[in-house]
Simulated assay, not measured.
Amino acid sequence: MSKKNSIGLEVKDSELLANGLNDLLANYQLFYMNARGFHWNIRGEKFFELHLKFEELYNDALLKIDEIAERILTLGYTPIHSYSDYVKKSEIKESKDVSEGHAAVELVLEGFKTLLIKERALLKTAAEADDEGTNALMSDYIRQQEKLVWMYSSYQAKK
């Protein structure tokens, strides 16, 4: 006999999704902190351009962090909420003392790659669980980030 949660999803599927979303949440927290650091510490010829771009990144990440945590709660679980748990769980690692533009952008691209892999896995799990809420969230994130990967990769292109 199957057991459904308050939004009509299988409890076992919801737990699997919540665990994946908590993993994504941890990675977003580190992505956010890194983007914030890049914003504060960027130097050089492209300062004004990159300073604004990194601010856009961390503001967007902050919104996604809240959406992910609220989705975990909607599924009936608790979002992790300590920095020590984020650091332990995240594949994205802390970036310290990065002030050169191309190095920072390369770390952003690596962060997006990690996030996209996790989002695609969640998209597949959500589809199998018939969880349209998580599915829609991941689809939106993937579409947006694929475009950002193209743009930041174009910035990195050598002449």
Results as ranks from 00 to 15, higher is better:
K3T: 13
N5S: 08
N5V: 03
S6L: 08
G8P: 05
L9Y: 02
D13C: 09
D13H: 13
D13M: 13
D13R: 12
S14H: 04
S14N: 07
S14L: 04
S14M: 04
S14K: 06
E15C: 02
E15Q: 12
E15M: 02
L16D: 09
A18R: 07
L21N: 03
L21H: 07
N22Q: 09
L24N: 12
L25S: 01
A26T: 04
N27W: 08
N27M: 06
Q29C: 12
Q29V: 09
L30C: 05
N34A: 13
A35L: 01
A35Q: 03
R36E: 06
G37Y: 00
G37N: 13
G37W: 00
F38P: 00
H39D: 05
H39N: 11
W40C: 05
I42F: 00
E45Q: 10
K46W: 06
K46M: 07
F48H: 03
F48G: 01
F48I: 03
E49H: 04
H51G: 02
K53S: 13
E55A: 13
E56L: 07
L57F: 01
N59Y: 04
N59Q: 12
D60A: 12
D60L: 00
A61H: 06
A61R: 01
L63Y: 02
L63M: 11
L63F: 05
I65G: 07
D66Y: 07
I68N: 08
I68G: 11
I68S: 07
A69Q: 10
R71W: 03
I72W: 04
T74L: 08
G76Q: 06
T78P: 00
T78I: 11
I80V: 15
H81G: 15
Y83W: 06
S84K: 14
D85Y: 11
Y86E: 01
Y86G: 02
Y86I: 02
K88G: 08
E91F: 02
I92Q: 06
K93I: 04
K93A: 06
E94A: 07
E94L: 11
E94K: 12
G101S: 14
G101T: 05
A103I: 01
V105H: 04
V105D: 03
E106I: 10
E106Q: 15
K113G: 11
L116N: 13
L116D: 06
K118N: 10
K118T: 05
E119Q: 15
E119G: 09
R120N: 15
R120V: 03
A121Y: 04
K124A: 10
A126K: 05
E128H: 07
A129V: 08
D131H: 06
G133R: 07
T134I: 09
T134E: 10
T134G: 10
N135E: 13
A136V: 03
A136C: 00
L137R: 06
L137K: 07
L137A: 08
L137C: 10
M138H: 05
S139C: 05
S139I: 10
Y141C: 12
Y141W: 11
R143K: 15
Q144F: 02
Q144R: 13
Q145S: 07
Q145C: 00
E146L: 08
E146S: 08
L148S: 14
W150K: 09
M151A: 11
M151K: 12
M151P: 14
M151E: 09
Y152F: 14
Y152A: 09
S153I: 04
Y155S: 02
K158W: 06
K159Q: 06
